[in-house]
Design a protein around this nucleic acid. Sequence first.
DNA 1: CCACGGATTGGCT
DNA 2: GCCAATCCGTGGA
Length: 205
Amino acid sequence: MKNSFEIYSKLPPKFYRRELLDVAKDLLGKTFVRKINKKTLAGVIVEVEAYDGRTDKAAHSYGGINERNKTMFEQGGVLYVYFIYGIHYCCNVVTGQKGIGSGVLIRGLQPAVGINTMIKNRFGNIEANEKQLRNLTNGPAKITQALNINKMQNGTDLNGNQIFLAENNFSKEFEIISGKRIGIKKSADLLWRFYIKNNPYVSHI
DNA sequence: CCACGGATTGGCT
DNA sequence: GCCAATCCGTGGA
């Protein structure tokens, strides 16, 4: 029996090459799939934030291309992984056309497949207590740790087989809440954070 | 050249 | 609520 993520086709490149905020909202409820060491790790996206290199002072890409942010300027459909605070990695889905510098930060994931491996990646344990389970993937750097994503995955083509997004086989019935983005000072009033109402894997309530 | 702050997290008060 | 961990791009001297 093939698992459901191989039956449901991955999202096509054109999904990512649309308007930033449309892609951001449409990412909610999609499945984020990570294949590593012949294992599948996957979760449903429940929280995102949009960043626009042209108008948004909080975006890494605002102010032009550099060594760190160059992946953001690729054509939509690749993964931008950045290193922050000397410790953490976070990942974005790059959107739009080449040269724009827009992307969507993945901030919350509801674990679905390979949860035991995620626990091992996050805590080094086989077993996890309730608190650890709640904190498995409810934050951008927690997600990269759980899914074993680091700078090696920066620029990964989301149309490949290592990391991709797929439709899910869950209900599409959910309410989207928008609000201010977390942890930024510039362009702080934009309501470019989107999350699924009442989902326990949203990072900040 | 050096100081500073950042799309975060986890531990301690 | 506060703060350390600790890399890297930016900006001022």
